[in-house]
Design a protein around this nucleic acid. Structure first.
Lengths: 209, 209
DNA sequence: ATATTTTAATTAAACGTTTGTTTTAATTAA
DNA sequence: TTAATTAAAACAAACGTTTAATTAAAATAT
C-alpha cells in the first residue's frame, strides 16, 4: 500500500497516541490536532478511526518483520551465531518501534478475530517457523540440545525484551539512570539485554560444557 | 478497606471488563449490566468510574502481593530452593489472577504519576528488595554467582510468565492444545513454565557445574 | 411486640459533554 | 471551469454523572 506524506503524517500521530492512550482512549480530534490536520481528513483519507488504526497497524507491521530468511539459510554461519543475531535483531526492532510494540501488547491481550488479530497471528507464526528451522539446523549439526521447547524459548526472548520496554521507566529508576537521555538509555538497554539473553540462550541451547 | 457483597460484585464485573476492553473501552453502563445493578450505584458506592477502578485495583493488589518475607528469612532452606519457590509462587499468582494482570500490563505502559502508578511502583519495589536479599544470601553462601543483574533477571521471570499469559491463545494454538479445558490448559502452562524458568535460573544463578 | 421515625439502598429519567462521522461551504490547484 | 483539497459547523449516539422519587432496612419510641 502506498501512502501520501499527509497520510503518513496522520498515521504517525495516531500511532503515538494509540500507544500512549489506547484506541478508545484516543479521539479523532486528538489525532487531528496532533497531526496538525482537520479532523474531517481522517474520514476522508481512511474512512474511519478504526480503518486508520488498521492502516497504521498494517503499515508498521511491514517494517516490524524480522529479516531472517537469508540469515537462516546461510550455510557459512554457525547456528549459535544465527541465534545471537536473531536476538540482536529482535531487540533492535523493539527498541526502535516502542510505540508500535505497546500497541501490539494491548492488541495481543484481546483474543479477537478481526483484521488486527490475523495480522499479529501471521507475524508470530512466521517468526516461529523460521526459528524452528534455525533450532533444527543446530540440532542436526549436534551443537544444540535435543529437547528444546521453541514456543517457550520465544516467550522468554519476547517476554524479557517486551517487559523491559513496557516498564522502562521503572527499570530506569531502579538502576539510577535518570541522568541518561532517552537515546543513551535505549543504548544501555540494548547492550544489557543483548548480553543477558545471549547468556540465557547459550545455557538453554548449547550442548557444549 | 472493607467492602460489601454488592461492592465486590461490582468490582469483579469491572475487573473482567477493564481487563478485556481497557478503562476507556469500558462504559459504566457495561459494568452496571454485567454486575446486574443500576448504573447509579457505581457513583453511589465509589464516587466515579475512575475511583471504582482505583478501588478495584487496590483491592486486588492486596491479594496479588507475593508472600516472601518468612520464606526469604527461613534459615533452613537452600537459596536455590527459595528461588524455585519464588518462581512457582509468581506463576501461581499470575495464572490465578489473569484479569488483574492484564490490567497491570496496560497500566504499566503508562508512565503516570497518579494512584495506580504508585500502587504498581510499591508492588514492584517491594518484590525487587526481597529478591535482592535472596540473591545476596545465595552469594554470601557461595552457591550463587557474583555478577547477577537482579532487575534484568526479574525482567526474564516476569516477562516470560506475562508473555505466556497475555498471548495464551496463540501458545495454545501453536501447541495444538485446543482440546484442553481452560483449567487443564492453565495447569499445563504452570507445569511447563515452572520447569522452563527453573532451568534458566539455575543456569544464571548457580555456581556449580 | 408494634408502630413510627430515620437512614440506607435502589430506581428511572435527565443533564451537559464528548464521541465518531457527515455535510456544507470555502479555498486551492489543474 | 472543473476537480481536488481543506475548514467549519452540524449530527445523532454514547458517555459519565447527577437528580429526584421510591422502596427496603434499621433504629427508635410506644
Amino acid at each position: 500500500m502506498e501512502y501520501s506524506d499527509k497520510q503518513i503524517q496522520i498515521m504517525e500521530a495516531a500511532e503515538k497516541l494509540f500507544a500512549d492512550k489506547g484506541f478508545t482512549g484516543t479521539s479523532v480530534r486528538d489525532i487531528a490536532e496532533s497531526a496538525d490536520i482537520n479532523l474531517a481528513m481522517i474520514s476522508y483519507y481512511f474512512g474511519s478511526k478504526e480503518k486508520l488504526f488498521e492502516a497504521m497497524f498494517a503499515h508498521r507491521s511491514e517494517s516490524f518483520k524480522l529479516q531472517l530468511e537469508t540469515m537462516v539459510q546461510n550455510k557459512e554461519m554457525e547456528p549459535m551465531e544465527k541465534m545471537y543475531q536473531l536476538i540482536d535483531q529482535y531487540i533492535l526492532k523493539l527498541t526502535n518501534q516502542q510505540c508500535f510494540h505497546r500497541i501490539m501488547v494491548r492488541e495481543q491481550m484481546i483474543n479477537g478475530h478481526g483484521f488486527i488479530a490475523s495480522q499479529i497471528h501471521a507475524l508470530k507464526t512466521r517468526n516461529q517457523e523460521l526459528i524452528k528451522q534455525l533450532i533444527k539446523e543446530g540440532q542436526d549439526k549436534g551443537v544444540f540440545k535435543k529437547d528444546i521447547d521453541v514456543p517457550l524459548m520465544m516467550m522468554t526472548m519476547v517476554g524479557t525484551v517486551s517487559q523491559l520496554v513496557t516498564t522502562r521507566h521503572f527499570y530506569r529508576e531502579i538502576n539510577g539512570l535518570q541522568s541518561l537521555s532517552e537515546e543513551e538509555f535505549d543504548q544501555h538497554i540494548k547492550t544489557k539485554l543483548s548480553g543477558h539473553l545471549k547468556k540465557i540462550f547459550k545455557a538453554i541451547l548449547s550442548n557444549e560444557e
